[in-house]
């Protein structure tokens, strides 16, 4: 109990330190237009929370994040499993995945913007950013499954479904958890970036852009804080569901 109180005190102290530093920088800059402080940002955030546009925009952004993440994780699992089991599938997919992974996100966004509706671009971008993470993790998970257990399953001619359930999925679990957490983290960043570059509406990204365009810096900060909070809440919920700490990448 004492330890928990101590930990809470450390966390609150750290938060206060950064808030005070933020206020000091803001005061030294001396212009809300360039660098608003935490109080002004909070006021702007409260103002945003009172508008229906805020919830619509955040809702659409979340939909794109989760749409992209679940599409990429779902297909990443399917193709990752196939690639883990069948070398030809792996050989075919590896260069494509490697290319997509090396592409700058901006290139992906601009290219997809040529072919897709602006509202769909962020979702597609998130898919292209997150799919390689899941595919790689699942493929590696399958390949690193204990070969002695695989040989045992071969000896007893264990059917594929049962192998996946009892042998591969437990071995894959840490890899899947890691890829899901990474995909959600990357998903937020790529979705909001794509929303701005593809002018997707309604979206949190475009509100961020408009705030900058109209020199409403406190609102720009408020949107940024709102997005950070949303990302943290989603990550927390995901961790609760997964029940594991984020493994090392």
């Amino acid at each position: 109990m004492k330890k928990a109180h101590g930990r809470a005190a450390v966390v609150i102290s750290a938060a206060l330190f950064w808030l005070i530093l933020w206020e000091c920088v803001s005061l030294s800059v001396g212009s809300e237009l360039i660098f608003p402080g935490p109080v002004r940002t909070l006021a702007a955030l409260i103002g945003l929370l009172g508008t229906s546009e805020f919830y619509t925009s955040v809702g659409w952004t979340m939909l794109r994040v989760f749409g992209g993440v679940f599409l990429s994780v779902g297909l990443g699992i399917v193709f990752g499993i196939l690639s883990g089991f069948y070398e030809p599938v792996r050989t075919i997919l590896a260069p494509a995945v490697s290319t997509v992974r090396s592409l700058p996100v901006v290139s992906v966004i601009i290219l997809l913007n040529l072919w897709l509706k602006s509202g769909v671009v962020p979702l597609a971008v998130t898919f292209f950013v997150c799919f390689p993470i899941t595919w790689t993790n699942v493929t590696e998970g399958i390949l690193s499954t204990d070969p002695l257990l695989v040989e045992m399953a071969d000896l007893y001619r264990v059917p594929a479904g049962r192998r996946l359930r009892d042998l591969y999925f437990p071995a894959l679990r840490p890899y899947l958890n890691a890829s899901l957490m990474n995909a959600v983290g990357m998903g937020w960043k790529s979705t909001v970036t794509a929303e701005v570059l593809a002018a997707a509406r309604p979206s949190a990204g475009m509100n961020l852009y408009y705030a900058k365009l109209y020199l409403n810096t406190p609102e720009l900060f408020a949107w940024t804080v709102a997005l950070i909070l949303c990302s943290m809440i989603v990550e927390k919920i995901l961790r609760l569901i997964i029940g594991k700490e984020r493994p090392a990448i």
Partner: peptide, 10 residues
Amino acid sequence: FQEDRLLPAV
């Protein structure tokens, strides 16, 4: 087998 080769998660 020489090793137990038991599925650890079940």
